[in-house]
Amino acid sequence: MNVLVLIKQVPDTTDVRIDRETNTLIREGVPSIINPFDTYAIEEGLRLRESAGGGTVTVMSMGPPQVEGALREALALGVDDAILLSDRAFAGSDTWATSYTLAAGIRKRGEFDVVLCGKQAIDGDTAQVGPGVAKLLGIPQVAYVRKLTLDGKRCIAERMMEDGSDVLGVPLPALFTVVKEINEPRLPSLKGKMKAKKAEITVWGVSDLEVDDSEIGLDGSPTRVKTIFAPELRTNGIVFQGEVDETVPLLVKELVPILKTEI
């Protein structure tokens, strides 16, 4: 069982804010983390390797050189090897160009049975790269997977829908994007951390991949950011303080018209 896990390094979004007076960003040393959903994908990869009784788990990411940190974190968890797709030519990629570049990286890496991704990244929230990669590789995909089990040569995947789960039989190779419910990620061991520190990380640039220059980076991205602005602020709320027999009736007076007219 050879598993490829696609991960993204993201800023811990809690710290990114817009200063409303100057319309500029406030970032107080925003720490970078592995996209939280991708940690479940890594864990699922390790579990698949274990339940198949062997194989490899490879993590791959596209981004600037500092993404190496995220890849080392993954290595510390027991991942076998890590590949970073990094080149100035990849800068400005939207989800189309990112999918294209990652698919080229996966093709170069060679044989795999399963590709795993988190359901979406917390900075962009698009959930588009996983399905895009699957299409470009010409393999089936299942998004929002809450349970994945090996069943001979295929996987049984439970896909989380709004009203329940679709249970699907999926021949391999295939791509799955996973939700948080799928597992409980392990913590790195001391031995794992030591190993990760010394591990060699493969870095591939544009010349290492079979890609068309017009399909990568900003030039290969169909979408463009036109403007960036701060969301509208909620007008100052009304907060009631005091005894319950005073505050509750005041709130009820506000809520009843909303409940009767708007809903």
Partner: peptide, 15 residues
Amino acid sequence: PAFGGNIMATIICPD
């Protein structure tokens, strides 16, 4: 919205 709703972005697809 992007970055967990802290920022809004207007996106176009010109070509």
